[in-house]
Design a protein around this nucleic acid. Structure first.
Lengths: 111, 111
DNA sequence: GTTTTAATAAACTACTTGTTTAATTAACAT
DNA sequence: ATGTTAATTAAACAAGTAGTTTATTAAAAC
């Protein structure tokens, strides 16, 4: 898998609010598929598929614990994305967009 | 358009190497559609559609200059993504992943 | 050893994406 | 006005995505 493919998979996986919400849950710690599905108005198989997409992108890993498959957040792809955005930082800083558009984001809740 | 929709559109638009490459070109300055299409082994209509996706996500804007439609990089969605990744920074720093996985990325060329 | 719980697989529908070829609009040049 | 360059639109199609329902595997609990 090339670096490009990794970015493709990560960006693509993050392009769905349910999957970002799953990651936000996992930021609190490991969780089972059922626990992750609970907040959603969606069937369990649908959530299971989203989890598979996240796993394929390397955004989560899984470990088996008795009858549960625990999901765990993996940060490497997020670091790669953060690194990708850094290439453009000099441009946006040169344009002074910083205060007008970035600060409001800081107050947002999780998604 | 909600903040979530904006992130959806931005992540989704970035999940294609051609579109990231177009942004990398635009980091050098404004460019016409034909100029942007030149490096690709792809038809012009295909590139035109990718540009439309980028525009829809707010990643570029366009201005008309005689017979040309010049494309210009817009950084706000990239800033939003950078801001999104920051939520996870404390986790990856706590795990020491920093040196093993992030530094190599810095040396990568554009994509 | 049934039954319950956790999760995935299979099959299907509806929708979206990526690409191509061909046709069309718009502006400029002569 | 005609031809050329710039770019988009239209039409067609293959491939992929998101979700559903139903069925199945696998371990636990009783």
């Amino acid at each position: 898998m090339t670096k490009d493919d990794q970015l493709d998979a990560a960006f693509s996986a993050l392009a769905h609010p349910a999957r970002r919400a799953i990651l936000a849950q996992l930021a609190q710690g490991k969780a089972s598929v059922n626990a992750l599905a609970e907040p959603f108005d969606m069937t369990l198989p649908a959530v299971s598929k989203h989890i598979r997409v996240l796993e394929h992108a390397g955004l989560i890993s899984r470990e088996k614990d008795a009858q549960f498959r625990l999901c765990k957040l993996e940060t490497t792809p997020i670091q790669e994305i953060a690194s990708w955005t850094e290439r453009y930082r000099s441009i946006w800083e040169a344009r002074f967009d910083t205060f007008d558009t970035l600060l409001p984001d800081m107050k947002e809740d999780d998604t």
